[in-house]
């Protein structure tokens, strides 16, 4: 058990829906209008359409294909083809564990990661295997403590989510450093 960072909290606004991959598994990530982030299996239980192509309406994640709506608990609340149908709570996508801490959205289970004040920097999408990114760690760059959280997307692609744990001294320079890091990883 454990947690993997899959996004920066600031990159997921209320009403946003996104898709990501975790070890090859497709995950739909969305934030409801109350501000809570959710990570679900990226597959509508109706006919398998990826939920990450959907949209948030009335606080519900709505599937793009036939408009089936799911609330924050994952319960189906509407099936537009059958307006008289009251969906039961057993009609639901598979939900994954999702918490927010230290400016990031985390996917997994168990004791949640420590939650510290954080300043968002960047999510670096890299065409390298996650091993090349190194482990989850803190490092000091330009006098600023950074939290670097790697995400394995698939065998040859990964993402490094980066926040500052102390007020960043020079954001532009740090972003420049991160871009250089990605270039050097992909050139290797």
């Amino acid at each position: 058990m454990g947690w993997t960072a899959i996004a920066l909290s600031d990159d997921l606004a209320p009403g946003d829906v996104a898709g990501t991959r975790l070890d090859g598994q497709e995950v739909a990530l969305w934030r409801d209008m109350a501000g809570v982030a959710h990570a679900w299996e990226d597959r509508c239980p109706h006919r398998g359409m990826r939920l990450s192509f959907g949209f948030v309406r009335s606080g519900h994640l709505t599937c793009l294909y036939h408009g089936w709506q799911y609330d924050a608990q994952g319960r189906c609340r509407a099936i537009p083809a059958h307006p008289e149908l009251t969906p039961t709570s057993t009609i639901r996508p598979t939900r994954h564990g999702c918490v927010e801490a230290s400016g990031m959205v985390w996917h997994g289970a168990g004791e949640p990661p420590p939650d510290m004040p954080a300043w968002p920097l960047r999510s670096l999408y890299c065409d390298v295997a996650v091993a090349a990114l190194g482990p989850l760690r803190r490092e000091k760059w330009r006098g600023t403590t950074l939290l670097l959280a790697p995400q394995p997307r698939n065998a040859s692609q990964s993402c490094l989510h980066v926040v500052a744990l102390t007020p960043p001294n020079d954001v532009a320079a740090l972003l420049h450093d991160l871009a250089a890091l990605r270039r050097s990883l992909e050139a290797a």
């Binding site: 239980p45 109706h46 398998g48 083809a81």
Partner: peptide, 8 residues
């Protein structure tokens, strides 16, 4: 792993 309804 699907839920067909009468519309389907």
């Amino acid at each position: 792993h699907e839920i067909p309804t009468r519309a389907d």
